Structure formats: structure tokens, C-alpha cells
Computed example of a mutant assay.
Amino acid sequence: MSTAARVRVLVVALALLAAVAIAYTLHAAGRTDERDKPRAGGPPVQTGQFDLTGKGRILFRNMAWGPQRDHLASVALNGTGGVRTAMPLTCYKFNAAGGTAVCVEAKRGPVNSFSVVIMDSRFRELRRYAAGGGPSRTRVSPSGRRVAWTVFVSGDSYAGVNFSTRTSIVDTRTWQRVKNLEEFRVVKDGKPYRAADVNFWGVTFADDDTFYATMATKGKTYLVRGDMKSRTVRTLMRNAECPSVSPDGTRVAFKHRIAGDTSALPWRLHVLDLRTMKETATAERRPLDDQVTWLDDRTLLYAIPAEYESDQYEVPADGTGEPRLVMKAAQVPVVLR
């Protein structure tokens, strides 16, 4: 084929590709996103405003289909089945404590990108960081001074072993930042430990200096206790993931991996007493993948996969009772006590 013929073929091919692209764009522009359509039987949602100064409420990511899906919402603790109020703030992940909030915003596109936005009690932006990966977990210390977040650098699930994470912690007073928790010294089983495959995720704060998290290495997971002053983490036990420390600081709820379970959700909800190191299985027997919230010192709040992606259930932390549905179509709840 001559050079002129090749050029003509290339021009025709480019024109066809352009026509297809334009047609798809016009089709997409005129299409109603199914996510924006409310579904019958879903939780009632109204538009409004709120902040972190109120008490007796739960803030959460609204998952009900409709124009407020993914928006930050609020509902009364004593009326979680009632009308929820959603504000025009979209948070893929969310947490708050001590007058500080962290919202992970998603920018949709051919390649999704995420920003970690730290806000004050009225949701005014204080700092913004590029997430640098797919967001996973985020937590704020009780005083609001420390904010932690984890992103997937590769992979997108904790169920397998082919993933890598990066966990950052920032001080909201000085804005000094630990860019990667892997910078900390590791003491494993009482001995200094170094390995190239160490990953951390699921930070939960007892106070501004003490935190708990998951550490993975050599195909095994560990609950670790971290100290911000000494920049050290120490292993406490094996097979504990995504910990959540109780308000009184005496227990940690976590995902216990079931040996031999190769499903997408190989975990069950357990609680560890930090004083006795006794592990208790809760009455929730269904598989889950969540960093749970303590509703109070006796009760756990957590997500179970459901029609609207996830519903929130509660169960006693001491192994008694039965799971109870608290909220439909909700994720990442924060309790304003």
C-alpha cells in the first residue's frame, strides 16, 4: 500500500473513532443516571444542614438511591428509622471526633482520584491531601488532634494477599504528617522486626499518642499497638484486622479471619479485652468487612452487605444478645454522643 493510501485509511479510521466518541458523549449526556432515581421502600431523605456540635445523632454516608446518595447525612440516635437529613457534601469515607472531621472525596472520571479533606466542626476545609490510591479506612483521635487514613496502593481488597497499603497520620495542630506508617519501628513478638512486605491499615486511636492498627507480613495479620512519641508499633496478637477501640479504651473490636475461608468476606466480628487479652466472638455470625463503630461502651455498630450496598446493625460486645437492624442504606457512621 502506498503512503498516500495509508494516510487516507488513517484519516477515515480517526473520523470513525471521533464519530463514535461524539455519539457516546451525546448519549451519556442525555441519559439519566440510575443512581439519581429514588427507589420505592428506601429510607426517606430530606436536604438540610448540620455540623459536629450537636449531640445524640449519627452522621453517616447515605447509600439510599436518589439525588442524595453518597452525601453525608444525619439522623437522631433515638429515631434511626426516621427521615434522614442529607447535606451537599459527598464523602466516600468519613470520620469525626473532637470537632475535627475527615472526608474522602471522589472525583469520578476515566481514572478515579480521591482527596482527603480535613475539616473543622462546621465542615470548613482546613487541609487537603491527594489520597494517592484507593481509600480504605479513616479515623480521628478522640480529641480531634490526629487524623489517620489508609489507601490501597495496589489491589482493592483485604480478602486476598496481593495488595499494598499506605497509612498516613497527620497532626491537626502542627500539620506535621507521617506519610507512611511503615516509617515506624516494628517490635514483633518482643524483637525488632524488618521486612519489605510490611503493610499497615485500620488505625484506631485510644488517645493522641496511642493507637491500634493491623499489620500484615509474610501472609499473616497482627493487631499492633502504636506509640506516636517513640514512633514504634508492637504486635499484640495474630489474626485481628481493622480494629476499633471502645470509648473507655479497654477493648478492641475487630474482624477475625476464619481459617480456611477463601470467600470474599472471610471474617467474623470479635472483641478483645485489652486487660486480660481474652477474645470473645459476638452473636453476629454473618461475614462482614468493616471497621466497626462503638455505639456506646457496650454495643457495636457495623455494616452488613444489603440491597443498598450495606445496612447498619448493632450487637452487644460481650457475646450475648442478637444482631438488630439499626439503619438501612448507610455506611461509615459516626456517633455524636
Rank of each mutant, 00 (worst) to 15 (best):
G249P: 00
R122H: 14
R108K: 07
E279R: 11
T90M: 00
T25S: 15
K220G: 08
T276V: 13
A159V: 05
S154Q: 08
G48W: 07
R8F: 01
Q312G: 00
P287T: 06
P266Q: 03
T280Y: 02
E307G: 09
G260R: 04
R286W: 04
L77P: 02
S310L: 04
R231A: 06
A148I: 12
S246F: 09
R57F: 13
Q49D: 12
R251L: 07
P38K: 07
L288N: 07
E125S: 13
Y313H: 01
A18I: 14
N239Y: 11
A29I: 12
Y302H: 09
T280A: 08
I58M: 01
G321N: 09
T85N: 01
L301T: 08
A196W: 11
T293P: 02
P44G: 03
V186Q: 02
L77Q: 02
I169S: 07
R69E: 04
V9Y: 15
F205S: 04
T276H: 03
G132K: 05
R268M: 03
I169H: 09
V203N: 01
D171M: 07
A240I: 03
T221W: 09
F211E: 11
T299V: 09
A101F: 10
D311N: 06
P316H: 02
A97G: 12
Y92M: 14
R139N: 15
D51N: 15
K255V: 01
A330V: 10
A329F: 05
V178E: 10
G249R: 02
D273V: 03
A64D: 06
A264Y: 04
T250W: 14
R8Q: 03
Y24I: 15
A19K: 14
D227F: 04
P305K: 06
V326I: 00
F205A: 06
S141K: 13
D197R: 05
T174R: 05
M1P: 03
A64S: 12
R39E: 09
